[in-house]
Design a protein around this nucleic acid. Structure first.
Lengths: 214, 214
DNA sequence: ACGGAAATTATCCAGTCGTATAATAACGGC
DNA sequence: GCCGTTATTATACGACTGGATAATTTCCGT
């Protein structure tokens, strides 16, 4: 008696990996990283648990890939918001706003970010991923700032630029974190508005220079 | 043949609970929340695993207590740094500095904070604890700001005060987070100095008003 | 169409998890 | 100094974990 086996279709390595990573993120977002077991993940991806070890050396490596995907997603949407074909002021504004409105400001995104953050301390691979993303983000902010101050006709030393970038980044991170964690306290645009006004002050611009619509 | 049983000493409920919570935090800091199992925790506390359920209804409740302990510790050291018996400017400065120097800026503290943060999304009890602490922190900042601007002779509407507090809090949080996560990029005082200068700008003070030593 | 490589499933395994329960040791009251 | 209360230990349990292995199905090249 031949046992009835599940029928399945083969998939390319690329999409299978992506499916697994997406399923991992779904699991983490819904049940936390504790509940993101290989069986749950496989189940959500529509495959069986054993397959995971066919594409990843182990669960840990898959989690790393998932973390990379989350961080790339966050920085990418923000960076893409600062499109090249606009004036520096507009780009800076869009960048700030993008970081403090959906989909970045989103409880799912926060869940994912939070789930991984604690691994940075213990796992050097996670630390490296974080570091890369942080520096890339910082670099993007510095580029935006340089262009902005250039357009404005104000000199900006590299040292001051970096210093601004660090503070600006911290401000955005903090607003994002608390604003998303305690989402019910802030409405949609409140966060972004607060950020624009704060950045304006942070860079010691004249009031309205960043906040005014045009 | 009587089996040799472990000898032990009874402890008061208060200290036993504290021991267990401290052991929980040690575990989390060293092996992450995943590795903080009841057996590990009990082992580190010098008791057996079963005892945990004698003081807590379950592991979850113990984790909540531990989270409360961490957050209280963080806010408490910061608030205590802003001693009542000093001038508003000095208190504000000390408050900011305290939040960006050890023991708050400490990889262990970050580990603990990070380990719990993801639970806020799923567990309403954790969400409540976070919310309480966030609001308490915000309140403290508002109080400090009001006193500071009063001393300075500048008017400050409640609305603006709250807005300042939110941004200031976000800035501190962000600097704390990134500065501690990527500790090797910043040296001891760099973080606090950056914070003072940024807050100065954020509140639109004149340069040196907060940063200068006296 | 068919044969072979390999993607996928099915099953097993040793370990660990949190929790429940019963036995026992410690301590305070008398 | 004993006795009852209870804090603590010891052990057992069922569920679940990530990983290993072997069987089987799919699909591509010919």
């Amino acid at each position: 008696m031949a046992p009835a086996r599940r029928s399945y279709t083969r998939a390319s390595e690329a999409e299978r990996r992506e499916d697994l990573i997406l399923a991992t993120l779904d699991c983490i977002a819904e049940v936390g990283i504790q509940g993101a077991t290989v069986r749950q993940i496989a189940n959500r991806a529509g495959v069986t648990a054993g397959l995971i070890r066919h594409y990843f050396t182990g669960k840990d490596q898959m989690l790393e890939a998932a973390y990379r995907a989350v961080m790339d997603g966050m920085t990418q949407t923000a960076i893409e918001a600062a499109r090249e074909d606009e004036a520096p002021r507009a780009r800076l504004r869009r960048f700030i706003i993008a970081n403090l409105t959906p989909p970045v400001t989103d409880s799912r995104t926060l869940s994912l970010w939070a789930a991984f953050i604690s691994h940075i301390q213990t796992d050097p691979n996670f630390a490296a991923i974080h570091r890369d993303n942080y520096l890339a983000f910082l670099q993007e902010v510095e580029t935006l700032l340089l262009a902005f101050f250039d357009e404005r006709g104000t000199a900006l030393s590299p040292k001051q630029c970096r210093s601004f970038a660090i503070s600006l980044n911290a401000l955005i991170d903090g607003l994002w974190l608390e604003g998303t964690l305690t989402a019910d306290l802030f409405d949609e645009h409140e966060l972004a508005d607060a950020a624009l006004a704060s950045v304006e002050a942070l860079l010691r611009l004249t009031p309205g220079e960043l906040t005014s619509e045009k």
